[in-house]
Amino acid sequence: MQPEPAASPHDRSNVSLAERAYRIRRHALRMGEVQGQGYIAQALGIADVLAVSYFHAMTYRPNDPEWEGRDRFLLSIGHYAIALYAALIEAGIVPEDELETYGGDDSRLPMSGMAAYTPGMEITGGSLGHGLGLAVGFALGLKRKNSKAFVYNLFSDGELDEGSTWEAAMSAGSYGLDNLIGIVDVNGMQADGPSTGVLNFEPLAPKFEAFNWFVQRVDGNDLDAVVKAFDAARSYEGRKPRIVICDTRMGKGVPFLEERERNHFLRVEADEWTKALDVLEQGYRSTEGRA
Rank of each mutant, 00 (worst) to 15 (best):
G188A: 00
V254E: 02
A149S: 15
D178R: 15
N179V: 03
N221Y: 07
A149T: 11
Q216Y: 09
T196W: 12
A205Q: 13
L223V: 10
A233D: 05
M189G: 04
D219G: 02
A149W: 13
K148E: 13
Q216F: 08
S156W: 02
V254H: 05
F208T: 01
F214W: 11
E162F: 14
A149E: 02
S164Q: 14
G220R: 03
T248P: 01
F214M: 10
V244A: 00
G251H: 01
G141I: 02
N200M: 11
G141H: 05
N146V: 04
N212Q: 12
K148C: 01
M189C: 09
A232P: 00
Q216C: 07
D231T: 13
A139E: 05
E159H: 09
D157C: 03
F150L: 12
A172R: 11
A232N: 14
G188T: 01
L223R: 09
G141N: 04
D222S: 14
V184Y: 07
F208E: 02
P206C: 14
N221K: 14
S171V: 11
M170R: 05
K228F: 08
V244T: 01
F208I: 01
V218Y: 00
K252Y: 01
D157G: 00
D161K: 04
C246G: 02
A225V: 06
Q190H: 13
M170F: 14
V215A: 05
N212C: 11
Y152A: 12
V151Q: 01
E237F: 00
Q216T: 06
W166L: 09
A229N: 02
A225S: 14
S235Q: 10
G238D: 09
S195M: 10
G158C: 02
S164D: 10
L160I: 04
V244L: 06
I183Q: 07
D185N: 15
G220Y: 02
D222Q: 12
D222L: 14
I183A: 03
R144W: 15
V186M: 12
D222Y: 09
G238E: 11
K207V: 08
Y236D: 09
Y175G: 01
D157A: 00
N146G: 06
A229Q: 07
N212K: 14
V151C: 11
L177W: 07
G163P: 10
F211Q: 13
V198G: 01
P194G: 03
V184G: 03
N179G: 06
G137K: 12
G197Y: 08
D161Y: 13
